[in-house]
Design a protein around this nucleic acid. Structure first.
Lengths: 313, 313
DNA sequence: ACCATGTAATAGATTTTATCGATACAAAAT
DNA sequence: ATTTTGTATCGATAAAATCTATTACATGGT
């Protein structure tokens, strides 16, 4: 049994296809076939059921794959040990970010971070919370930023900041004249929300549920970005809710439409997520420090009420 | 980096000597030299300081060795996964037992166990508690039986049984006429104990401390086995204490010298110890079941007061 | 039934790697 | 100084991993 063989097994298990797995591992397909056969022989078990199309893991194959992942993870960690000792922070690092955090948070810390940690090659991907969960679990992401708490077994969460929600209330709206709004003022049929998969909505939906309605399910409109939402709102289609950081760069003439919540303000918790195996922990720590450092200045400390994206489950 | 290289590193780290490590790993010394150099090159670090005699680990070398152990442990566990799936219980299993448990417990379960699990090649070694701790930590033992609680980080304890102490009181001794004895009856200067390293004594010493004396340290006599102790006791050199199982096979004419404690009787806790990495867990489980099964019949359930071998620290 | 397609297994050649035996070299012990 | 003990180096060899080319085997479509 070699580490290489185990990596091959993981690749085939992932792609359910020897040929594709071969490309990903930069070897030819016969190499994979042979090495995996050799491993199966050594262990005297069948890892893959090759009669199925596409290829499938056998019952024991699944356990083998799990253990293989453990071994490969520990092996990868060897480089971490070396890097840590050398004080070296570098290498490829894959970070996932949910869409409603990406545009505001990324510009705030990216330049600073890459300047400080030039050896780290950040690969950032915009992903939904579900995609993030899967990709952290199977090691395709080193870390991610999403609304929490998720409380997923095998994923660690480190809170970056609490981001209050702010109401965006167009003229002629029934709440326009209030200086501060409260959760119970909200009406689900009255709020423009982002499309499904954006976990921001989860927070808001729960906020509304918690404060008022039974949520009659059907919303009036769904859109892809807060910019659109604001425009729709301006057209008189209803109010909307924006995470605090998004309110920082809306045009001045529209700022008068912002209505903060009375404290404790509803807020979302945004955290850094990573696999509990803690691979590349040094980079994760560096990221955490960078982000929470830059955020400390941006979000005024205030009394907030956390809205869980998971509460609806 | 290969698993083989990591095993070589572990061997050299253990023996502090390439030549000996080579013998243990069944390769030649140049093979070790080359493979370890290759690994050092790949990681761009020095694992060993070869200027020192005997050879030493560098600072980072120690961390590398730790991680190497993690990887190799996970790799070894692959066979466990396969065995578990196949319901196969077998292979070499190294078990350590402390001297004061060995002669009584071993005969009770060994025959039964080997009959039931013929595929397991038990290698049993008589060791002191300290030796056991070290050897479990570095993987030279798969499990051990000793008096607990030890509460060692990285070692798991599963209690096998509680073994009451029984007084062996010769004629003309001041306690001879009592039907049952109590902890406070004991006097350290008056008891024959086993030599240091036998953790049984720890228990007794603590028993005495707890019940009476400040333990003026110097004992009158120290010996190597309970048999000797009994004989010395018969010669009028004082009373002694025996673990319950040892009292089962003393000659009938001497049984009249046994004095049980009033309940709750002082007792020692005897446990199965194994590394928290849980390698070969199936065999450990099998052992546990075998031993606690045979013990259930042998030790009458009674109210006991546990004497910790560690309390003196 | 036959063929096209996608995919894995096999065979043989080639390259790479691990290991060995012999020996050189260094440091400590005598 | 010489012997002992132990590691590094060298060249040869055996073992292995990988490659290219090809075959085998399904599956679905015609």
């Amino acid at each position: 049994m070699t580490i290489t063989q185990l990596k091959y097994v993981l690749a085939v298990a992932e792609h359910q296809n020897f040929t594709k797995a071969a490309q990903k591992t930069f070897v030819t397909q016969p190499t994979l076939s042979m090495q995996i056969q050799k491993l199966e022989e050594e262990l005297s078990i069948q890892i893959f059921d090759r009669t199925k199309k596409p290829i499938e893991l056998t019952a024991i194959g699944k356990k083998i794959v799990n253990q293989a992942r453990n071994i490969v993870n520990e092996a990868d960690r060897m480089q971490d040990v070396v890097d840590q000792e050398k004080g070296f922070i570098g290498g490829v690092f894959k970070l996932g970010i949910i869409p409603t955090v990406m545009p505001t948070l990324l510009p705030m810390f990216l330049k600073n971070f890459t300047k400080r940690y030039g050896k780290v090659q950040l690969k950032i991907e915009e992903l939904t919370t579900d995609e993030i969960i899967h990709k952290i679990k199977d090691g395709h992401l080193d870390a991610a930023i999403a609304a929490t708490p998720l409380e997923i077994e095998s994923i660690k969460e480190r809170v970056l900041y609490y981001e209050p929600f702010v109401g965006y209330i167009p003229e002629h709206h029934r709440l326009f004249d209030k200086q501060k709004i409260e959760g119970k003022d909200l009406d689900l049929d009255d709020i423009l929300l982002l499309e499904d998969g954006h976990c921001f909505r989860d927070g808001v939906v729960n906020l509304c549920k918690a404060s008022k309605l039974q949520a009659g399910d059907s919303f009036q409109l769904e859109s892809g970005s807060f910019e659109t939402l604001i425009k729709l709102s301006n057209e008189g289609l209803g109010m909307t809710l924006l995470p605090f950081l998004h309110t920082l760069d809306i045009p001045n003439e529209q700022k008068s439409y912002l209505r903060y919540f009375t404290e404790p303000s509803p807020a979302r918790e945004v955290s850094l997520l990573y696999n509990k195996n803690e691979l590349k922990l040094q980079i994760i720590n560096a990221l955490y420090e960078s982000i929470s450092g830059v955020i400390r200045g941006a979000i005024a400390f205030q009394d907030v009420k956390i809205i869980s994206p998971k509460a609806k489950n």
